[in-house]
Design a protein around this nucleic acid. Structure first.
Lengths: 342, 342
DNA sequence: TTGAAAGCGATACCAA
DNA sequence: TTGGTATCGCTTTCAA
């Protein structure tokens, strides 16, 4: 501990022989201040390791330059908190925010108090909210939006939402994935996912679209609802095969984690993947290409999505209205669905 | 936007017919205030959705109740930013901090300005720093510690550090991993990792310990230095086998990501795992048990580590001296090293 | 182009 | 047990 007595703007100003007003303006590069003065003060600040007190500045300006990112998880803690996909989104958001000179306050829905607007916005902890994951209920998001809080949510962009949503073309992605299986001759594909979840509901529609496009009747026994975890995917497929035998020849899973769980269950039973059962997931997490066989998937463009989310949020901070966006997806074909690929 | 005019403590006080001093004390549950008054004011606050202005409070108290968590990444951005292990640590830190009523400001070493103390501490953005990843150079950490900033680093706890470090028993873990391979008859194990990295250096020592304990001479050609990524692990083993043939019968990899890359390279060459080559990694990421064969690994107790890091940091905030801690590890035996396991 | 001074909203000392 | 009041450090209006 060397320099304990705080070195404030007024100290700096005194040192430079100017008023705090001038010093403040100079540091912010206000052109109203003579360039020479500006440079002198900036140099002095650098030399003395000076930095403005953010708390004071925030109090005065009523702006924090902080965005709260809330990981909106479901009850089973262990689930999504380890989902590499969600964490990737957080990483990308961090990057996008920093580039615009905003900081990221990380929270999750277990920790954050119930009233987000009150806790983050009214209290001057953050200027806006980004929620990752629509989960099954969006009452908190709606409440925040209605209270006037700037908010952007990662979720299903086609939801008739009362708040701004950015997300992938879920329905299209699911359709492409399912069609990919069908075209390779797998006409009895399973839908594996969580129907109560908005994004997954869209993916289910895409699955149905693909079946319809190929005149394949929907077989309810192939629609399996399950949590979005590795373990749940494993259990679900394991149970299904045990009970009904191998009455399907493909799997479209709503997340790669689920797909990998399903794959494990099949491998344990020596099912030939992709010949007897072709599998495709969603998200394209890094693990997808590492699995054996490498997992086909629908890649979500999280980097682009993160940038859009931040842009939208800053728009709202400027008083402009928000607008939802759907981000394109990309079919990644690998060996788990197509034997000609690696 | 409904309630735009800010509702401040003084408004609340007026409403309650008391002074701001009393209101402030009541809200914080100060027992000096008559219980009846306290409850009345708290109820009023709840009713009016009141929350204290954090910026003002921080300015006045000179405490932010915020901890900056810095992801300290190496140059190759793409690398660690996707490493599930590091992200898990962040998740656990978030939990541990929230439990103690602290918030987490997320940064990474690319974004954070150079002088951490100045940017985070002097500027009243955070009360302390937690750095995840020692990387290859620790000059910034040393600078922060010398400037008197409360700081705790995730890294190698046996480093002769000038700052508080919390980390796993790297040497012991590596020794156990390597011995596990040896005991199963794999007497020519490769060491796969990045020797410039402090934690990995310790793991290398552990690897040597195990060899020495079994009177196996160290063979330099089996020590392979590589980046800690999936791709690097793949390339390294691929290249090695191509050049020298299969001149090893086991792999101890410094991270699961590297191990999985190596595994993929071997599988492509139809090497029998674990019979011909047994593999074990480090970290025990979720993917480890999903891979095929499931990957043996050394589990790091990140949850406990996160709690210790937070405890240590709060200690420093109280002016007490910091102390480094080594957290125990656990050998997880799976099929990639032991054919009798699943 | 610069300076004086008011005030952002809480906390805590001192008095009562 | 409560209240008055001086700060915390910065930004910004108004005046010079």
């Amino acid at each position: 501990m060397q320099n304990n007595s705080r070195f404030t703007l007024s100290d700096l100003a005194k040192l430079a022989g100017v008023s705090t007003s001038t010093a403040s303006r100079a540091l912010r590069g206000n052109p109203i201040i003579k360039q020479q003065t500006r440079e002198r003060i900036q140099a002095l600040a650098l030399e003395h390791n000076f930095s403005l007190n953010a708390a004071a500045s925030r109090l005065r300006t009523q702006r924090t330059h902080v965005i709260a990112v809330i990981l909106n998880l479901t009850e089973h803690t262990e689930q999504s908190i380890n989902d590499p996909f969600l964490l990737k989104v957080v990483g990308d958001l961090n990057q996008a925010l920093n580039e615009r000179n905003y900081e990221l306050l990380l929270s999750n829905s277990f920790m954050a108090k119930d009233d987000w607007t009150q806790y983050f916005i009214k209290s001057s902890r953050a200027d806006g909210l980004i929620v990752v994951g629509q989960a099954k209920s969006d009452t908190k998001m709606i409440a925040a939006a209605e209270a006037g809080a700037p908010i952007v949510v990662w979720g299903d962009p086609h939801a008739s939402a009362k708040y701004t949503v950015v997300g992938s073309e879920n329905r299209l992605g699911a359709k492409q994935a399912t069609e990919h299986l069908i075209k390779l001759g797998h006409t009895r594909p399973v839908f594996l996912g969580d129907l109560e979840h908005a994004e997954m509901g869209e993916r289910y529609k895409g699955y149905c679209d693909a079946l319809a496009a190929h005149n394949i009747p929907l077989d309810d026994s192939l629609v399996m609802s399950t949590d979005l975890t590795y373990q749940a995917g494993y259990d679900c497929i394991n149970q299904s095969v045990k009970t009904n035998g191998l009455n399907f020849d493909g799997i479209f899973a709503c997340s790669d984690m689920v797909a990998l769980g399903a794959m494990k269950a099949l491998k344990e039973r020596y099912v030939n993947i992709p010949v007897d059962v072709a599998i495709i997931g969603f998200d394209d997490i890094p693990m997808a290409e590492m699995s054996h066989p490498a997992l086909s998937s629908i890649k979500q463009n999280t980097k682009l999505a993160a940038e859009i989310m931040v842009t939208e949020l800053l728009r709202q901070l400027n008083g402009e209205p928000g607008q939802s966006h759907a981000v394109g997806i990309e079919l990644k074909i690998r060996h788990s669905s197509d034997p000609t690929r690696t």
